[in-house]
């Protein structure tokens, strides 16, 4: 999930009797599963929450280019290189249309980028972990994109039209991304002893951070209720996390790898896997900026933006000159 801990602009669900007539009509539309479109009236808090969520999602796609981009020049075959390039290209493309979705709510891409660079907006905690071996590229596709799909499948039904439609497209790409990740893992898990060791090491490092992607436990998630009432959020953090674990454990077994959680086991009564929760103190530390790569990731993004300033200005200046010349000729 690429949006975590998105602060709903209010705490708790607004009771119906406290709503204005307009707010009640809005809520009725949401309840009736109608899509809210950019020009429709919407509560300010709904708008603000969505901007945070879509913005965070867009930033995650953009920053998410970096850990995978780290291996493009070292991809082990031409085909793997091409697949990885295509995947990272997809991510940049999603960043683009998610920023566009946010723009329909009245905030520009440049404003959102500035907020990211000032540390006032976040991106997913997962991208603050390093990619140390080629198996990490597989683990990201398999686990990270796998976790993302869990959430994004639900978000196809989210109440805000442009976001829901973006998710439809993203889900198509994401399932391809996950398959290629699992394919890398299969090649390595069934490969040489060194490759299998790399695959196990990647699983060990990415398992708990992947569980963290769904955000804190429901009991600590104060923003969930209102977001769910607005259908900005469609399932709770714990529901999605459980679904992810249930889906992933058999895949780990198929690969012949060992889950780094020694206590994980199928609960015969519930039919779900019981598992050890991640270390939430690590999660909050990473969100605060103290993960292995936070500073490097932000430095890379800020440097790219600042080094690119002359390019953006040059392009704009040329466009203005051309427009002026066209106007003069008319």
């Amino acid at each position: 999930m690429y949006a975590q801990m998105v602060k709903t602009a209010r705490v708790g669900v607004k009771p119906r009797d406290e709503m204005t007539e307009q707010e009640r009509a809005f809520q009725d539309r949401v309840d009736a599963n109608e899509k809210i479109e950019p020009k429709d009236w919407m509560p300010d808090d709904y708008r603000r929450t969505l901007i945070r969520q879509i913005g965070q999602h867009a930033h995650s796609e953009v920053v998410g280019q970096l850990p995978e981009g780290n291996w493009i020049t070292r991809a082990p075959t031409l085909e793997r290189k091409a697949i990885l390039l295509a995947k990272v290209q997809d991510e940049a493309g999603r960043g683009l249309y998610l920023y566009s979705a946010a723009e329909t709510l009245g905030v520009s891409r440049d404003e959102l980028i500035e907020l990211l660079h000032q540390g006032r907006m976040k991106y997913s905690s997962i991208f603050n972990y390093p990619t140390l071996t080629w198996a990490d590229v597989g683990a990201i596709g398999w686990l990270v994109d796998g976790a993302a799909i869990m959430n994004q499948v639900h978000l196809q039904r989210t109440s805000y039209g442009p976001y829901a439609r973006a998710m439809v497209r993203i889900c198509k790409e994401e399932s391809f991304h996950q398959r290629q990740g699992y394919d890398i893992m299969m090649k390595m898990a069934f490969g040489t002893p060194e490759q299998k060791a790399m695959a196990q090491d990647a699983l060990n490092r990415f398992w708990y951070p992947s569980l963290m992607m769904f955000g804190p436990p429901d009991q600590d998630s104060v923003h969930t209720a209102q977001s769910m009432a607005w259908k900005i959020k469609v399932a709770t953090n714990d529901e999605l996390r459980q679904k992810f674990v249930d889906q992933t454990v058999p895949q780990i077994e198929y690969l012949g790898l060992t889950c780094p959680d020694p206590d994980i086991r199928l609960n015969e009564e519930t039919g779900h896997y019981d598992f050890t929760p991640p270390d939430w103190s690590e999660f909050f530390a990473v969100l605060k900026g103290n993960g292995p790569c936070n500073k490097d990731r932000m430095k890379a993004r800020i440097t790219a933006w600042e080094d690119g300033a002359w390019v953006r200005e040059g392009m704009l200046a040329h466009a203005r000159k051309k427009a002026a010349a066209t106007a003069a000729a008319e």
């Binding site: 953009v62 280019q65 970096l66 981009g69 493009i72 020049t73 290189k81 091409a82 390039l85 295509a86 990272v88 290209q89 940049a92 493309g93 960043g95 683009l96 920023y99 891409r109 890379a300 440097t303 790219a304 933006w305 080094d307 690119g308 300033a309 390019v311 953006r312």
Partner: peptide
């Protein structure tokens, strides 16, 4: 060209450079 991945001046260029490399 692929060394630019994630470091281009604007997102459109990230996409275009990745596409060229591909």
């Amino acid at each position: 060209v692929s060394q630019w991945c994630g470091h281009a001046p604007v997102l459109e260029e990230d996409i275009a450079l990745a596409n060229t490399a591909l």
